[in-house]
Every structure is written in structure tokens, then in C-alpha cells.
Amino acid sequence: MVAQEFTVDLTKPLVFQVGHLGEAYQEWVHQPIVSKEGPRFFASDFWESLTLTVWWAVPTIWLPVVCWFTMMSYRMGHTPSQIALIVGAGIFLWTLIEYSLHRFLFHIQTKSYWGNTIHYLLHGCHHKHPMDGLRLVFPPAATAVLCFPFWNFVKLISTPSTAPALFGGGLLGYVLYDCTHYYLHHGQPSKDPARHLKRYHLNHHFRIQTSGFGITSSLWDNVFGTLPPAKTTGKSS
């Protein structure tokens, strides 16, 4: 007797349902529902609230942190021109992290119950509901957790006086990334490069989801050969 395939009930909280899809999860999650009204994740109002973030919370919370870390390097004796270079290096480092996370973690193939569940929370929900405006940016609590390994990594590759500004630059790169990502989904750019970036990113969502992993630029897609085929980079539908 063939087991009946599991069907997700979109009227009920989704997070603890999607794991039951098993191998069918990958196909299901990459069939987007284009609606500005997002789904319910959890039955608990507390846990549900942790998944909802307005876009302006990202610069409001993290830009003061960027300034504080940058000033640490300044107080340690670095000149403004040196600080600018270090911060620029941090932003550049972030672009590689952005690409790597998107390609190797956010698009990991899963089929187990918990694998599907965690993937849905990390990124699958965004592909299933790409216009959900309250789940487009990373929740501050999750960002704070990720800052710890990033800070330790920065300390490992830099000096004590340059590490704060390098970390601040990386965090600034993250802020630019998350705000850009929100704008690409909900803004209406009329000029390049923003218009090109919007087409490029929506192409990743609605046409070929196994390439085009850059958000703020296509730099690392060029470097690592993950540019989408030329025939799919035209105007989005």
C-alpha cells in the first residue's frame, strides 16, 4: 500500500509541518506564493513575534554598533583614511560571506524532518513567500548570535587595533545587504544599477534558483561561475 503524500495546510502554522514533506520539500519550497501577506509560522505568539522584523530595524539597531566598533580602532591610533580602508575591507569581506551563506547554507539540499524545518526557517520561507515584507530581513536576535563567530574570525585574521574597524565594516556590509535585499523585493527602481539588481535577484527567485546567489552584486557569481544563463537574465515577468 502506497503511503499518501503529506500536504501542507497553509491555514495553519507552517514551521512544524514542512518537515513532514521529506524529499518533496525541495520542490514545494521552490514554488513561490506571491503575496504580501505572510504565513503563520508558530502557534505561540511569542515565537511568532521573533520571526517578524520591519526592515528599518536593521539600520536602527546595527549602525550604532558599526560606529562604536569603528571608533574603537580610531581610539587605538588609526587615522580616518586608514579607518576608511579597513572598513572598506570589511565590506568586501562581507560580500564573500553573503555569497557563501546564500549558496552553501541557504540552498543546502534537505529531506529529513529537522533538516527541512531548519532550512525553512533559515531561507526556505523566503523562497516560498518572497514578498513577505516582515520576513525579508534577518531578525536582530539571530544576527546578534551570528556576530560572535564573525567577531572571533575577524580577530583571528587581523591585529587587535584593526579588528574592531574590520568587524564594523563587515557589519556595515550586512546592513547594506539586508536593506538592499528588502528594496529589491519591494522597491521600484527606475535606473541602473538598482534596476539590474532587481531583475537579477527576481530571476533567482522565479526562474533559476540554482544560480545568481549574489544580492548586492554579481561579483562572486562571476568569480565562481554561478551566473545564470544569459537567456534568463532579461526582464522579469
Rank of each mutant, 00 (worst) to 15 (best):
Q188F: 07
S211P: 02
K191E: 12
P140Y: 03
F167G: 02
H205N: 05
F69H: 09
T226S: 13
L219A: 11
F138V: 15
A163G: 14
F42R: 01
L63T: 11
H205A: 09
G234L: 06
G173P: 06
L50G: 02
H196I: 14
I61F: 12
T95L: 05
T79R: 13
L121W: 02
H127D: 08
G90W: 01
R135W: 06
W56L: 10
N152P: 00
I91Y: 06
H127L: 12
P80H: 04
V65I: 14
W56T: 08
R75A: 08
T7L: 08
F46D: 03
G170M: 11
D192C: 10
W47D: 04
V18H: 03
W94S: 00
G90K: 01
N203A: 14
V154E: 02
K155W: 14
H107C: 13
V58R: 00
H102M: 07
G133S: 11
G173R: 05
M1A: 14
F213C: 00
D9P: 06
F213G: 00
L63I: 09
Y200E: 02
H129L: 08
P139L: 06
P160R: 09
N222I: 09
H127A: 04
I157K: 04
H30Y: 12
M1V: 05
T210H: 10
C179Q: 15
A141D: 06
M72Q: 15
S44A: 13
N203I: 02
T180H: 09
F148H: 08
G115I: 12
V2N: 05
A230Y: 05
Q26N: 13
I108H: 15
L202H: 14
K155R: 10
F42S: 03
S237G: 10
T226G: 07
K128I: 03
Y120C: 00
